[in-house]
Design a protein around this nucleic acid. Sequence first.
DNA 1: CTTATATGGTCCGACATCGAACCTAATTGG
DNA 2: CCAATTAGGTTCGATGTCGGACCATATAAG
Lengths: 155, 155
Amino acid sequence: MTEDPKTLDQRDAARLFSFFTEIGIINQLSMALFAKSLPDGVHPSHFSILNHLVRTGDGITPIRIAGAMQVTKTTMTHSLKVLTERGFITTGPNPEDARGKLVYLTEAGRAFRDAAIQSVVGMFGHLLEPEHYKIMEELGSGLEVLRKFLDENRM
Amino acid sequence: MTEDPKTLDQRDAARLFSFFTEIGIINQLSMALFAKSLPDGVHPSHFSILNHLVRTGDGITPIRIAGAMQVTKTTMTHSLKVLTERGFITTGPNPEDARGKLVYLTEAGRAFRDAAIQSVVGMFGHLLEPEHYKIMEELGSGLEVLRKFLDENRM
DNA sequence: CTTATATGGTCCGACATCGAACCTAATTGG
DNA sequence: CCAATTAGGTTCGATGTCGGACCATATAAG
């Protein structure tokens, strides 16, 4: 019909659907498993925030965390409130911007993150077979290309 | 320390984390894009139910749909209520099981699904490049292995 | 047959997430 | 220097999802 290279033919459309379906199911199943390996009612998103603070260093703004986690600032406000109530983080004023805050890890937060990693690695480690790690490694670069592209083109 | 082949070394643990992180981000970004391409407040999960009914045929039970969509029956009850209110499905008694229901597509539901596909294909089609379809195709089989494994081992 | 258990579905409460509206402070234009 | 716009955060209401409790029917055990 058309020669526009960006027009989807039926095969492309089918690939698109099945690909994102697989991604969605894997995400859902792995997140459910992940959630079960976390202690009493700590959501994976909470763990991710703590993990991000450990890896990139704390003393950063909620907005930056929200950007890294791909969630809205509204969601981040809520998540940080939960983490504060659990004693895993503290917040203080931002000396460079009177509108903003800075987020800091507590010792409890750091310890919780370490324990959670042990728990998660234990659960997945007893489940996955060596071939699965091989697959994950093989898929890594392709996924990265797609992730970066989607990230750059989001609206 | 140990020779247990299922004990994760640091490289495996890192692969595990980065893999599921990529999956999570791709899922989130693509779902957000997907949601934006659907008309006025129809959630991707609602579309998926309609799509499933078209592809596998209607007149099936809510439980079967829930299994296929990987959600709980509680969630399915809610989703079907929304779809019924929008006039996209109807439900009737199950002649073979007095406890159960059967779900049927309406003409409006079928039309909505078709229109949504056009919209989604249009949005992604104008965004993705040929190389991305190639990548998706290459990743398909590996993702399928992981998905099936997670699906069989969920608890 | 009667009882125990499993299954289809709904209701309720909890929670993560989002968008819209809003406030405050920073930045930019004039 | 002042007005307009941008950016960091919070609050509010809505929605999707889940787990637990519950009801009704179907199936299995005795």
